[in-house]
């Protein structure tokens, strides 16, 4: 039931994903979520994910070695997803010292393996920065869980968010975001098998309810 309705391949499922900033004020912690995919528990009555032809977005990600095209051709195709985020940039938290920018994510899988998580930021389809993290499995409730907890956001991303937030109009932010993408590839560290590949694209949220998203399967018909 998960495979057609959530970000899940045959071997790995994304449980949660968030990019946030956090600060302490008057002994209380304030957290603002830029983007967030919360836990879900879909049933057979829920609709299956819509599809997008992967060729429509190849040029938005690196087309060099290790780019989306090469990865998709290697497969497995059921591991490829696109997430359209409507990011919440409405935070009024003051920038500066004492503010922590982080990314947390959680995955669950069927095998006791070590995963490698590569996050590539692309500007105009060209990779500008990459972070590679290694995570080990923890057995929880009969499944293997992988947790990347409060991974610090890189300087490039923090500066990017600052500049984006200071643009006067939302259409200007969306114009910048049109050429900004992130590719996350989770692979088995030993075998290099792709377990999950998520292409992120962005707009700015106009909602009062914070960050929103749509998930699509990437196909090649």
């Amino acid at each position: 039931v998960w495979q057609d309705r959530t970000i899940a391949s045959a071997k790995l499922r994304l449980l949660e994903y968030s990019a946030f900033l956090e600060t302490q004020r008057d002994r209380e912690t304030y957290k603002h979520l830029f983007v967030h995919i919360g836990p879900s528990n879909p049933g057979y009555n829920d609709p299956v994910l819509e599809s997008i032809d992967v060729r429509q977005i190849y040029d938005k990600f690196s087309e060099k070695k290790g780019g989306l095209k090469e990865l998709y051709e290697k497969g497995p195709h059921n591991a490829f997803f696109l997430v359209k985020f409507w990011a919440d940039l409405s935070s009024d938290i003051e920038e500066g010292s004492g503010v922590f920018y982080g990314v947390s994510s959680q995955y669950s899988g069927t095998e006791n393996i070590t995963i490698s998580v590569s996050t590539k930021v692309c500007s105009f389809g060209k990779q500008v920065v990459e972070k590679v993290e290694t995570e080990y499995a923890h057995m929880e409730g009969g499944k293997y869980v992988f947790r990347i907890h409060r991974s610090p956001m890189c300087e490039y991303m923090i500066n990017f968010i600052h500049k984006l937030k200071h643009l006067p109009e939302k259409y200007m932010m969306n114009s910048v975001l049109e050429n900004f993408t992130i590719l996350q590839v989770v692979s088995n560290r030993e075998t290099q098998e792709t377990l999950l590949c998520i292409a992120f694209v962005f707009e700015v949220s106009t909602s009062e309810h914070g960050a929103q998203y749509h998930v699509y399967r990437l196909v090649n018909d």
Partner: peptide
């Protein structure tokens, strides 16, 4: 230098791609 890309609006994408969900 940046290569000019086809705008996302001109690509074959589902209608929902442009519709921000009300709530998630």
């Amino acid at each position: 230098c940046a290569v000019e890309q086809v705008p996302m609006r001109k690509r074959q994408l589902p209608a929902s791609f442009w519709e921000e969900p009300k709530l998630t």
